[in-house]
Amino acid sequence: MKMKPILEVKNLRTYFYTRRGVVKAVDGVSYELGEGETLGLVGESGCGKSISCFSIIRLVPAPAGVIVGGEILFGGSDLLLKSEEEMDRIRGAEISMILQDPMTSLNPLFTIGDQVAEPLQIHQKLKGEGLREKVREMLNLVRIPSPEVRMKEYPHQMSGGMRQRIVGGMVLACRPKILIADEPTTSLDVTIQAQFLRLLKEIQHTSNLSMIIVTHDFGIVAKACDRVAVMYAGKIVEMAGTVELFDNPEHPYTAALMKSLPKAGMRQNRLYAIEGQPPDLRTLDSGCSFAPRCPRAMEICRKEYPPRVEINDGHTLSCWLRKGEVLND
């Protein structure tokens, strides 16, 4: 991967100030997204993967959530320095997002046509027949049968898969450069999942779209992502090309995640599970946050957070195990 990056996230930190303490949901996340590339963000629930995405488009739930530091470079400028009005012009036009649940992503009181038309009205100031034509085109693109009829219908008249495709058509209507998909297929049937992913990939190929896919499903990663970042407790612990990561998972957490996948053709009585619970993000100490659950934790792991090192071309890692080896070489 040596593409020109379209998005650079540098040391992003997003905290939640709650009554019971500060939750460091995203704590120093850095990555690049290449043009036309698909990056997978993987991790357990609550590891900060969704919040890091909402931080990019500056839609962290206020007032508790605050982006406290870092840079998000897009088109040569830092998104974190933009005004709300400037962000309104970027959202939906340059960077767009798909949410997890298509059943709730659409406004129940507006027609499909109106909802797909909305970003086009806002960003491209389209009106009348031109607008309708564009809406038809988008619905065609996401394979909605007889768009002319469907435009006048309401979300409750459609199936989940259809709604997610409509959401896709809606957020891609203005041809954004980046699409963030937050668990886009989690609430869909398995067959519909594959269909929807294929559709996204096709659109990506024809329009050179860059994508960030948030998921906890390695199947989706394998199918759709060029590169993967594994997140744990608000930090990226390992990042590599998809093939490299599947072949050589270096971080004990990544390795454990891989181990907990059911394997085709193998009869297993029990699936492997990682011992313990994800850490409380309010009470993290200075050490590696995975150390309490790590089977190979050492003295230093509990004291100091391991620095990020590049162990292979494009394969980075934050773990003392490997750091030690590298140093010993």
Binding site: G92, E118, V167
Partner: peptide
């Protein structure tokens, strides 16, 4: 607090549009 409001923000709908068009009608 609903998802479709998040979605409207993602589309770039202005604050007043979110409040008066999307949320109030519901």
């Amino acid at each position: 607090d609903r998802d479709y409001i998040k979605m409207a923000k993602i589309k770039g709908v202005s604050r007043s549009g979110i409040i008066l068009r999307h949320a109030l009608k519901n």
